[in-house]
């Protein structure tokens, strides 16, 4: 008996207009998928190239280029920004935690216009560590490991002095700074000069009137002596040391130069207001990441927002060798 094959009424007979439409639809879908796939592959290739083969920045001169070839020598760039114990003696208020938080908020903000101190990502396991990827002077990728380290544990100097966590914080900040002098590419100190006896990461030693015992700091130099012995005692990869503290040019510049003549320094000849120091230190990081040459670097430290700090860079940009 002949098998009767019934087809639903709503289906066109095979080989009819409906199946052609379905075939066209299938071809269109496949074409769209292929385009999307090709587009995705194209984007991936472009991004890979951008990360790995991005053309290097144009440097004004060879000295500038060499400066940044030297600075970005390693694939991982170590930057330490250590906020000293920012007491306001004879008041009890201690501010470095807040300044550091503002600093971190700025560095983790989205990049806009010409600011390069931005788009940093925070580590989940280390509250002090921020990371950013960028291309070095050779166009190849680098990872910036920036540590922003506070010195105080709370806003009250009297309370901090009796908190055992404070001793740990002081030791940790001190170690971060001293280790940075040998193993980091750039170190920035933002804190008190203690009349030349700094840097300082601890509650200050007090005189009888409960103000800072500047005489003791001048005489004993508890913060500066370890800098000298560290720089003298071990090979160092440090290229730039920023000392954002009052009159740091007067207190520290010549003495550091004597120990390490080839070290780039940022210091200020003036008494430095805290927000000016903060703006200027952010600007110096931005300039390093943007690989600004000497003129532009200096200019960035004298813009409207940073001028008041009086910060000056010296010894960072190599002299051009004369072509004799």
């Amino acid at each position: 008996m002949k098998k009767i094959v019934t087809r639903p009424d709503f289906l066109e007979p095979e080989g009819g207009r409906g199946s052609r439409r379905r075939r066209r639809r299938r071809r269109a879908i496949f074409a769209a998928l292929a385009l999307v796939l090709l587009g995705g592959v194209g984007i991936a290739i472009h991004r890979y190239r951008a990360a790995h083969e991005f053309p290097p920045p144009a440097f004004e001169d060879e000295a500038c280029r060499q400066t940044y070839v030297n600075f970005y020598r390693n694939p991982e760039i170590d930057v330490k920004v250590v906020f000293g114990y920012k007491d306001a003696r004879p008041a009890r208020f201690v501010a470095d935690r807040y300044e550091r938080m503002i600093f971190i908020q700025r560095l983790t903000a989205k990049c806009t216009k010409k600011n390069f101190a931005c788009d940093f990502v925070r580590s989940k396991t280390d509250a002090d560590l921020l990371l950013r990827r960028l291309n070095g002077p050779d166009g190849k990728p680098r990872t910036i490991f920036l540590r922003a380290v506070p010195s105080s544990v709370g806003p009250d100097d009297e309370e901090n002095r009796v908190d055992p966590f404070q001793k740990w914080r002081t030791r940790y900040a001190n170690l971060a700074f001293l280790q940075g002098l040998t193993s980091a590419d750039a170190v920035i100190y933002n804190g008190h000069s203690r009349a030349g006896g700094g840097p300082d990461f601890a509650p200050p030693r007090l005189a009888k009137d409960l103000d800072v015992d500047f005489e003791w700091y001048r005489k004993n130099e508890p913060g500066f002596t370890p800098i000298v012995s560290t720089l003298e005692g071990a090979p160092s990869r440090l290229k730039l040391l920023g000392l954002y503290s009052c009159a740091s040019s007067k207190h520290f510049l010549d003495r550091v130069r004597k120990v390490k003549p080839d070290l780039g320094l940022i210091t200020s000849p003036k008494l430095i207001y805290f927000s000016d120091a903060l703006e200027s230190s952010i600007e110096s990081i931005s300039s390093l990441l943007a690989m600004k040459c000497e003129g532009a670097f200096r200019h960035s430290l004298t813009k409207a927002r940073t001028r008041a700090s009086g910060a000056q860079v010296s010894g960072f940009f190599e002299e051009e060798e004369s072509a004799d």
């Binding site: 989940k124 396991t125 280390d126 509250a127 002090d128 544990v153 055992p164 966590f165 740990w168």
Partner: peptide
């Protein structure tokens, strides 16, 4: 806490 600094802070408080 995921960050080690807060775990350190916790232990110092326990000690107090």
């Amino acid at each position: 806490d995921p960050t080690f600094q807060i775990r350190i802070q916790t232990l110092f408080l326990v000690s107090e």
